[in-house]
Amino acid sequence: MKQYEDHVQMEFRLNGETVFVRFDVDETLLHVVRNRIGLKGQKGSCLNGDCGACTMLLDGVPVKSCLMLALDVEGRDVTTIEGLKDTPVQQAFIEKQGFQCGYCTAGFIMNAQAMLETHPEADEAITNNWLASNICRCTGYEGITEAIKRAKELIADEMGK
């Protein structure tokens, strides 16, 4: 049986690279990525599943990394904002100023990225359903909505539509 005690080590893929990391058995994925590996893009805020600032992609699916043991990702693929390289979603957030203080931005972008990968033409209902998982304390929702619209255009352009 697999068992893990006190200080553990684990291998997983982070932003396309295999990483090997040591941590305490009860650490969350968010904690390990930020404090053991040093990628600070995804933020911790509520640490209670409410705000979405910590959203990462696990095998391409958004999860709240504050509510998950790091050990849950052993052998799996994790993507954080550092793993996105100038994607249409990132470009659109810059163009449309989809942020104010920026604390929530990486979480919104990861969720939007996953949404538009599965639904490149996401309508309002799909967008609301997905992005209701994230909260912007600065209430910059208008800019975020505009950024999502723009990202869809950029993706459609890329796909030659």
């Binding site: 049986m1 697999k2 068992q3 893990y4």
Partner: peptide
């Protein structure tokens, strides 16, 4: 928490319990 078990079979779980 300082221990996490990941049983792969119900026999392992029975022993663990």
């Amino acid at each position: 928490m300082n221990k996490l078990y990941r049983p792969q079979t119900f026999e392992e779980l029975t022993e663990l319990l």
